[in-house]
């Protein structure tokens, strides 16, 4: 799981152009939206595309997204259980 968390952190830094950040700067348990990284709705779309491209996960239920994208830890947990590649 630790490897997956690190991989997700690096992928999120790249996809969202968080240029001044390293994986160490991101608290895996901190909220991604609002506080924490302070991501917004466009970032949410970028994360949905990331999960589909990299892990073959299609998110069809919007209400599900709120829980999945709560933190890096919650994304890692969902990916480990649902990944298709």
């Amino acid at each position: 799981m630790e490897d997956l968390v690190l991989q997700l952190k690096n992928q999120i830094i790249e996809v969202l152009n968080l240029e001044d950040m390293t994986a160490d700067d991101i608290d895996a348990s901190a909220p991604l939206f609002g506080e924490g990284l302070g991501l917004d709705s466009i970032d949410a779309l970028e994360l949905i595309v990331l999960l589909e491209r990299e892990y073959g996960i299609k998110l069809s239920n919007p209400t599900e997204g709120k829980q999945i994208f709560k933190s890096i830890d919650s994304i890692a947990d969902y990916v480990s259980k649902n990944r298709k590649k």
């Binding site: 996809v15 466009i42 970028e46 595309v49 589909e52 491209r53």
Partner: peptide, 13 residues
Amino acid sequence: RFGENCLKPTLFM
């Protein structure tokens, strides 16, 4: 690479 699926919204906008 990905067809018309999975396209990044920021690049589109």
